[in-house]
Simulated scan of single mutants.
Amino acid sequence: MTQHVRDIMTSRLVTVEPQASVTAVAQKMRDEDIGAVLIIEGDELRGLVSDRDLVVRALAEGDDPKQTTVASACSSEVITVTPDENLDHAVELMREHSIRRLPVVEEGHPVGIISLGDLAIERDEESALGDISAANPNQ
């Protein structure tokens, strides 16, 4: 039986506007216990920023995180899938582009996100990555 992206995607989205500060986004990630936030303008997807992006593209450069906008730290060229795409295609895209998170969009509007952890739990929850991804977060 073919699985589709919608079968395992997370539909609870955490979003910010491009003008949000790196500090505000980092706090949102902490509060929501997530590693990536979608950047939207109106209801259109404009980018994705991960915790690693914040460190490598903003903090490591010495930028003031309260003054630096997330737009300068986010991945603006975002690879996406639709909810009805075959899950194997999503895996191929993640491999091909070396990405850990893949936004799910319908007509340009974000409706979900699929992560490497979601795939690990779905495909082999007994694997080390599946086990770690399913565990309660560190506090």
Rank of each mutant, 00 (worst) to 15 (best):
M1I: 07
M1P: 08
T2R: 05
I8Q: 03
I8K: 02
T10F: 06
T10R: 15
S11M: 02
R12G: 13
L13T: 09
T15K: 09
T15D: 09
E17H: 15
E17G: 15
P18S: 10
Q19I: 12
Q19M: 12
A20Y: 14
A20V: 13
A20D: 13
S21G: 10
V22N: 12
V22R: 12
T23C: 02
V25I: 06
A26R: 13
Q27G: 11
K28H: 08
M29C: 09
M29T: 11
R30L: 11
D33H: 11
I34C: 08
A36R: 06
V37G: 09
V37N: 08
V37L: 04
L38I: 07
I39Q: 10
D43H: 09
D43T: 06
D43W: 05
E44G: 05
E44K: 14
L45I: 07
L45W: 05
L45M: 06
R46E: 14
R46K: 15
G47Y: 04
G47L: 04
G47C: 07
L48W: 06
S50W: 03
D53R: 08
L54W: 12
L54D: 15
V55P: 09
V56N: 11
R57Y: 09
R57L: 04
L59D: 07
L59N: 10
L59G: 09
A60N: 11
G62K: 05
D63F: 08
D63M: 11
D63R: 14
D63P: 02
Q67W: 02
Q67L: 12
T68E: 09
T69E: 03
V70K: 05
S72T: 12
S72W: 06
S72N: 10
C74W: 01
C74S: 12
S75Y: 02
S75D: 07
E77N: 10
E77K: 10
E77I: 06
V78C: 02
V78L: 03
T80H: 01
V81T: 07
V81Q: 02
T82Q: 01
P83M: 00
P83C: 00
E85T: 00
E85Y: 00
D88Y: 00
H89I: 00
A90Q: 01
L93Q: 00
M94D: 01
R95Q: 00
R95A: 00
E96I: 00
S98M: 07
I99K: 02
I99E: 04
R100D: 06
R101C: 01
L102A: 04
P103M: 01
P103H: 01
P103S: 03
V104E: 00
V104N: 01
V105W: 01
V105H: 03
V105P: 08
E106D: 12
E106I: 03
E106W: 00
E107W: 04
H109Q: 13
H109I: 08
H109F: 03
H109P: 03
P110R: 05
P110S: 05
V111N: 06
G112A: 02
G112P: 04
G112F: 02
G112R: 01
D118I: 00
L119M: 06
A120K: 13
I121Y: 14
I121P: 13
I121W: 14
D124A: 15
E125K: 15
E125W: 13
E125H: 15
E126F: 10
E126Q: 15
E126H: 15
L129P: 13
D131G: 11
D131T: 14
D131N: 14
I132V: 15
S133E: 08
N136C: 09
N136F: 13
P137F: 11
P137W: 12
P137N: 11
P137T: 05
